[in-house]
Amino acid sequence: MFESSLFLAFIGLVFLLAGFVKGVIGLGLPTVAVGLLGLVMIPAQAAALLVVPSLVTNLWQLIAGPGLVRLMRRLWPMMAGICFGTWAGTGMLGGANAAHATTALGLALVAYAVLGLASFRLNVPARTEGWLSPLVGAVTGWITAATGVFVIPAVPYLQALDLEKDELIQALGLSFTVSTIALALGLMYGGLLSQDMAGVSLLALLPAMAGMFLGQWLRGRVSPQAFRRWFFLGLLALGIHLAVKALL
């Protein structure tokens, strides 16, 4: 599968772009990477390639924040739910489910893009976090297991917690890190994370980091709002294409 230099170059360009998007707006690496790789491979393979770049970049985002211990105490039920949902859905990405996984991936990208374009914001009262956090985590984990993308409903939920800007970025890093680890363990258990996949995933870290540095450099030179709009429009088109392609 990875013998073609053109194919490897495509993977490198995908992770360069995905890292660039994350550098500009603080998220989007797994969504862009899995979405674009889904054009040429099944979501299980795309998710396997995502493991190392996603883990390293999100650990970086997680550690750089101001209050990790406090966030972990507050969000641990959500993180436990993510692990439970991901492992409960292990196997949905591969084998006979590949076509359904591609459709689910397309629909997940469409949903995320629509929410982003609509600037949809929830408001979560503190009294509901006790039962809502593990539920949101479990649903996020199940969608992760089905699509390889771990933004719905985790990102809208975290945005609704009235966190400070730096806290929100760190909370997203925590959620994405736990999702990546849970997904990697699920893929390993299902035999979908081979040694070859792990090696290519490690190589993909280089363009992902280069793209992230470039995006961070550009962040202060472009309008984040305009960039987000074009990002979600592109994501919407990609999601529609994947969903329709899988159904035809």
Rank of each mutant, 00 (worst) to 15 (best):
M1A: 11
F2I: 12
E3M: 09
L8M: 11
A9H: 04
A9Y: 06
I11V: 14
G12E: 05
L13P: 05
A18P: 11
A18C: 06
F20L: 14
G28E: 10
T31G: 02
L36E: 04
L36D: 06
L37S: 03
G38R: 09
L39C: 04
M41H: 04
I42F: 06
P43F: 03
A48E: 01
L50Q: 10
L50G: 00
V51H: 05
V51G: 02
V52L: 13
P53E: 09
S54T: 14
L55S: 07
V56C: 13
T57A: 15
G65T: 11
P66N: 01
G67T: 00
R73I: 00
P77T: 08
M78L: 15
T90D: 11
T90I: 02
G91W: 11
G94T: 03
G95M: 05
A98H: 06
H100A: 07
T103D: 01
L105S: 01
L105G: 01
G106W: 05
A108G: 03
Y112I: 02
L117R: 06
S119L: 09
F120M: 09
R121I: 00
N123M: 05
V124E: 07
V124I: 13
P125Q: 12
A126E: 14
A126N: 12
T128F: 11
T128K: 07
E129L: 06
W131S: 12
S133K: 14
P134T: 09
V136F: 04
G137T: 14
G141M: 13
V149Q: 03
L163R: 10
K165Y: 00
K165L: 08
L168F: 15
S175V: 14
F176L: 15
T177L: 13
V178C: 14
L183K: 01
L187G: 05
L187S: 01
G191Y: 07
L193H: 07
S194W: 06
S201Q: 05
L202T: 13
L205K: 10
M209P: 06
F213M: 13
L214W: 10
W217R: 15
W217Y: 13
R219A: 08
G220C: 08
G220F: 13
S223D: 15
F227K: 12
R228K: 14
W230T: 01
F232V: 00
L233V: 12
G234L: 05
L235H: 02
I240T: 09
A243C: 02
K245Y: 04
A246E: 06
